[in-house]
Design a protein around this nucleic acid. Structure first.
Ligand SMILES: [Mn+2]
Ligand SMILES: [Mn+2]
Ligand SMILES: [Zn+2]
Ligand SMILES: [Zn+2]
Lengths: 139, 139
DNA sequence: TTCCATAATTGTAATGAATACAGAATTAAT
DNA sequence: ATTAATTCTGTATTCATTACAATTATGGAA
């Protein structure tokens, strides 16, 4: 709680109740939730929250570099509490996005073929370990 | 033209006029156009084409593995005539998506940390070479 | 504490990509 | 030519996201 307020202050974001709660949800949900998932979790504790507030807050967080947005699924943005670059796996069975440790030599380059690089995203699509174990392999 | 029909036949897609034209546009536009760009180019030669046909056709192409769809921009899908895996650069100034040669050792793996890998996408965000030369570096 | 300016939140309307669907047109088979 | 299947078209719908204006909360000055 104090730690969350601290993180908000570091990025010069006013720590309102809504913002603290949204950041807390991001911290506790490592499978990169979308706006709707965040909104529904939020409703349990803040029944008056507005969907617009969730959108506004997440946009602010991304602009200030507090969290990152992933464009992996075509339908919607997914949000990531972690901003240091890392790769992801999108499971086509359960829909979760899972962090993957990959040390890619190109992830640190600032220039490739004359183009200026500011951000790197790497992702895999497939079936996650848990779904494989459950035999959850065809829909 | 014959080559395009050949490619459609290989994938068991009936080579209708619309499909041939759409495939031709994809072949001639290497910056990974979206549906609207394809539609507007198409209108010049086929004024009666329907936007729905563009969507249907591209969905068919992707399902049959003739072209690939890129989820790099959050707004829309971008389409790629090339299906063999390669990396991309999204230019935040001109919006083009440019192919980048990167030999990533992870792009060929079939399994990572217990997860089954079926597809790999890697992309960079930044400013393309042409925009840098033009000094087109701040919007 | 009270007042005021600013920022944050909310609800509704609007936008825009993508899909659903049903009828029209085209093509292929008989 | 007739029929059946496929493709194409236009419209309506869905859904994520943004625009906007009104309301509420916040923080500082008096
Ligand atoms: Mn992550
Ligand atoms: Mn490409
Ligand atoms: Zn899974
Ligand atoms: Zn550019």
């Amino acid at each position: 709680m104090e730690r969350l307020i601290e993180r908000l202050n570091e990025k010069h974001i006013q720590p309102s109740h809504q913002r603290i709660k949204i950041l807390e949800i991001l911290e506790n949900n490592c499978d990169h939730p979308n706006v709707n998932t965040i909104y529904e979790l939020l409703c349990k504790e803040m029944p008056t929250i507005s969907r617009t507030t969730v959108y506004n807050t997440l946009n602010t967080f991304v602009e200030k570099g507090l969290v990152s947005a992933l464009t992996i699924t075509p339908e919607e943005l997914r949000y990531d509490y972690v901003t240091i670059p890392h790769h992801h796996l999108l499971c086509r069975m359960c829909g979760r996005i899972i962090n993957v440790e990959v040390q890619c030599s190109f992830a640190v380059k600032k220039e490739i073929e004359g183009h200026k690089i500011e951000d790197v995203q790497g992702y895999f699509k497939g079936i996650c370990k848990e779904c494989l174990i459950k035999g959850n392999t065809e829909k």
